[in-house]
Design a protein around this nucleic acid. Structure first.
Lengths: 348, 348
DNA sequence: GTGAAAGCGCTAACAT
DNA sequence: ATGTTAGCGCTTTCAC
């Protein structure tokens, strides 16, 4: 009844295996790295010793020697926002397909947190960074990151001309959504925007307004805000209290839209009979009958795959041309948006 | 107009700093590690060189020397389930407070994935593991992990008697929820359970049935399932089609409850007038007016803090006694549960 | 107070 | 086909 077959303490090393198998360290190393130039005999012996000793190569030592850690890192704004886990999962899979591990870091959109994470990640020797955090920290980035650690932006268009990025066409997405709303006859509409430092948020708002301008009598309202449900709630509440609320509102993301829905229900009104609601991101719950929320779906799989590919290319060949990728979006029309029904300013 | 003040290529090392500052490597190392025994003069020089060269100590080399990586890893079942990001964030903060970085891994509840991650993590030299993935992989764990990499289970009661864990009292939580439902007069009730391999799911079901048994004429139904909304939907659909659906159903988590709600709405019935619904986890959306879902709230902050503390203790002193911690739960009664209203088998 | 030197576990020449 | 050796960047004795 052996408790542990291995004496506790030090983990077995190449040298241990070599000794056990009666060969040299290099031979073991060759076997481990699946190098040719090893006789079947030796290989057999080594393999057995490895199994018996439960040897596992140390990534740390490898990283120290090779300067490569086979690890990528992903920075997200808010892991609590359902969109990011979805993206993270896709990126993790993509990275894994290419033999890389992925570290996920939560920046909470704070440059301080970004800095903390970046310091750590660089010291840890990650081979590349995927940045999906939404804004405010570009200065920190340029300060800390140099060409030895390539970086790709996902779902965020960076200011720098030199940067690599994979994004969705937010402006077009917003226009599609606006068109959808306009087609239902809405004219007094509301857009609950995100913060100005976020390129995404700005693009969505711009697209929205652009499309609204194509219709003579459209009167779009815009409310500044953040990415949280509370912002959506607050903005909607104010509009409701104004006495002349929009007949359709769009949140800068589904979180915000949910907040707005909440406020509408709290005021005793109905969706979409009184007010239509829509958002961006198409979070999982959006398609459920409970939310049944019209939204813009991003192709996270494509975003993930493309960004990882770009990053790997940047890691291999340094100093490559800036790479860009614009991924498709898809309008998911659902029950939260419908025609204007009240005596209002548009055809029924 | 200097493009980069540092020549590209190799990152600066201790030796570079030493040369630049005109001192020895050891002195630089002492300064970096805030060791005493350094003259103010030397320290000054070194500090300046460090700044100028933008030197950053290599965690990799440190880890190789010290055998410690100052990194913990968290394994979760499904980062897409809103409960886990919440937990992950709390654990990340707790780890960070103690000077540790956190790696987050998604096992998708697959032993294969668990193995992949564990192999990597151990090779990467993580100092400890926090396991919040829900089941099926305990064999993999005992096979791969030895006492050099301590492990703490969170939100999951392990089979092993020796293991450390921090969990919530699921049985009690389920009883509270059952009592709440019974108090509303419900007698024909449904529990949409999770998989049998998940201790959490089993405990919740047991608690539920235990409390139901305290009432003579209660007739609890149980439906096997998974942790996803689709399972909740499917189970509810079948009950609805049976013609005698329960007047109150509880999902093994909020995801499942949402699925059930979806099915109820799809059948044209109302919540809670026709059927009451509740869940576990108290995901963020549960408190919104849209879901307004009665649920059990776990103290994720406590779970996180306690588990990290336990893990660190295990890392420092090896071979410590098994540590256990049962964290509090709180019933959040909301609008999705209400009294029986139909001509049914209970007092109104 | 400071420096020299021996490793940590591995890879990658370079021998043989 | 296999062994020897010199590092990777750091910590840590141990001298001075």
């Amino acid at each position: 009844m052996p408790r542990r077959r291995k004496r506790a303490g030090r983990a077995p090393t190449l040298a241990d295996v070599a000794q056990h198998a009666g060969v040299s360290i290099s031979t073991v190393s060759r076997v481990v790295r699946r190098h040719a130039d090893v006789s079947d005999d030796s290989r057999q012996m080594v393999l057995e010793s490895i199994k018996e000793l439960r040897y596992r190569p140390s990534t740390i030592a490898r990283a120290l020697v090779s300067g490569k850690s086979n690890t990528l890192a992903l920075l997200v704004s808010d892991i609590g926002n359902p969109f990011y886990p979805q993206l993270a999962r896709a990126i993790e899979r993509a990275a894994s397909r290419h033999g890389y591990a992925l570290l996920i870091c939560n920046t909470e959109d704070s440059p301080t947190e970004s800095r903390r994470h970046l310091e750590r990640l660089i010291a840890h020797g990650v081979d590349g960074l995927i940045h999906a955090s939404v804004g405010k920290d570009e200065d920190v980035l340029t300060e800390l990151v140099d060409e030895r650690t390539p970086i790709v932006f996902v779902n965020r268009r960076p200011k720098s001309e030199q940067a690599h990025y994979a994004v969705a066409d937010n402006r077009d997405a917003a226009r599609q959504l606006a068109r959808h709303i306009l087609n239902f006859g809405h004219r007094r509409t509301g857009f609950i925007a995100g913060p100005n430092y976020a390129a995404n948020a700005v693009e969505r708002r711009e697209g929205w307004l652009l499309e609204m301008e194509t219709v003579e009598d459209a009167r779009p309202l815009v409310s500044e805000g953040g990415f949280d449900a509370v912002h959506g709630h607050e903005a909607m509440r104010l509009w409701l209290e104004s006495g002349q609320p929009p007949t359709a509102v769009v949140g800068v993301n589904d979180n915000v839209a949910v907040g707005a829905m909440d406020a509408i229900l709290a005021a005793g009104m109905n969706i979409p009979e009184d007010i239509s609601v829509a958002g961006f991101d198409d979070i999982e719950l959006a398609s459920s009958r409970i939310l049944d929320l019209t939204s813009i779906a991003y192709d996270t799989e494509a975003l993930a795959e493309r960004s990882v590919q770009m990053l790997l290319r940047a890691i291999r060949g340094s100093g490559v041309e800036p790479m860009r990728e614009i991924c498709a979006v898809q309008l998911k029309a659902r029950g939260s948006t419908g025609p204007v029904s009240r005596a209002d300013d548009a055809p029924a």
